[in-house]
Amino acid sequence: MVKKASSGLQLSDEDLEILNSPLGLKMLLADKKTNVEKALRLVKSEITFRELQAEIIKLQNWVIEKNKKVVIIFEGRDAAGKGGAIRRVTEHINPRQYRIVALPKPTIEEEGQWYFQRYVNQLPKPGEMVFFDRSWYNRAIVEPVNGFCTKAQYQSFMSQVNSFENMIMDSGIFLIKFYFSISKEEQALRFKQIQSDPLRRWKMTDVDRRAQELWDHYTEFKLKMFEHTNLKTSPWVIIEADKKIEARLKALQYMINFIPYEA
């Protein structure tokens, strides 16, 4: 049976059942002005999230039981939603068997090491998943754009990164490279929202504040990165991220499809 809401939206019996669930009622009451269509969309998305997250739990159990190793890189422009995507992926999995790595500025000692050394130190042990919120690819885009590395250091990185990743995969590590892609307009909107939120304002850095001004420069180095490091053995998975929910669902689904776990 299909019924019509006061807004004119056609609702099936299944839709009504969803909206009358605790989650549905929560979504309906989330805004001051009830928006049935938005609430229904959000509930359906949350149901899909939970289904995919249940599969991620099975995936992690397989990783643990079989002593597998997984590295998942989350790259993208500032405010692209990398951290939020990682939170949805890791929301319900065993916290003792995964790590989120978001390395700060290198120390003086680290600056004197081989560039990849501090990332090698963060690679997973058997039975572990590691999620990089930004990775060694800082040197492919963020560092050269902002003058944090020399041209020689950048060129050295580009000449070594593919071999480095081949060594990672040859050691038995599953490697996924996500790039969350947003538009310039969406980035500007998200920066404005962050700056106006006293609970999130601390997230804005000097690098973030220059991101819009340096947009084209970022694009130039991003395209160079894709051209040189988008290989059949370790491809970039580009996720359109202007819509956060859809981007996070795509990341979850790709992980499930890519890693050959046994339920």
Rank of each mutant, 00 (worst) to 15 (best):
K82R: 10
L199Q: 15
E14M: 13
D216G: 08
N94A: 02
T150E: 05
Y119I: 12
I57L: 05
N138L: 09
R139N: 10
D78T: 05
A211Q: 03
L249P: 00
F157I: 07
L249R: 07
L59V: 03
E262T: 14
V63E: 02
Q117H: 12
S21E: 00
Q10N: 15
L103Q: 09
T205R: 01
K26S: 06
S135I: 11
F258Y: 15
R96F: 11
I173P: 00
N61S: 14
I245S: 14
G147P: 09
G172Q: 06
N230G: 04
I259Q: 10
W236N: 02
L123S: 08
D208V: 04
L199R: 12
E17Y: 13
P95A: 06
G84E: 10
K250L: 13
L23A: 11
L28I: 00
F132A: 04
I182V: 08
E91A: 09
F258E: 15
W215R: 03
L123D: 08
A30N: 04
I56V: 05
F131Y: 05
N230E: 04
V145G: 03
D13L: 08
N61A: 10
I141L: 03
M225Q: 07
E91Q: 14
Q193C: 12
W215Q: 03
W215E: 04
W236K: 03
A39V: 01
G127V: 08
S234A: 07
Y179V: 02
Q195D: 13
P144M: 02
P95K: 15
A251E: 01
L29V: 15
N138Q: 06
K151A: 15
C149R: 02
Q153K: 02
L19C: 01
N257S: 15
T34D: 10
F74I: 00
P235E: 10
L9D: 11
E111M: 09
E65L: 11
F157D: 05
L23S: 01
I100E: 03
L28S: 07
A85V: 12
F116W: 04
E220C: 11
M27N: 01
E17P: 14
V63K: 00
F164K: 02
S156R: 11
Y254F: 14
R210Y: 07
S135V: 09
G127T: 11
I194T: 12
N257A: 14
V130K: 07
W215F: 00
M204K: 15
D133R: 01
Y179H: 05
W62G: 03
G147S: 09
R77C: 13
I245R: 14
G127S: 01
A251L: 09
V71E: 05
F49K: 07
K68F: 07
K125R: 15
S181G: 09
L52D: 13
V161T: 03
D15G: 01
W202Y: 09
V71N: 05
E51G: 06
A247Y: 05
K222P: 11
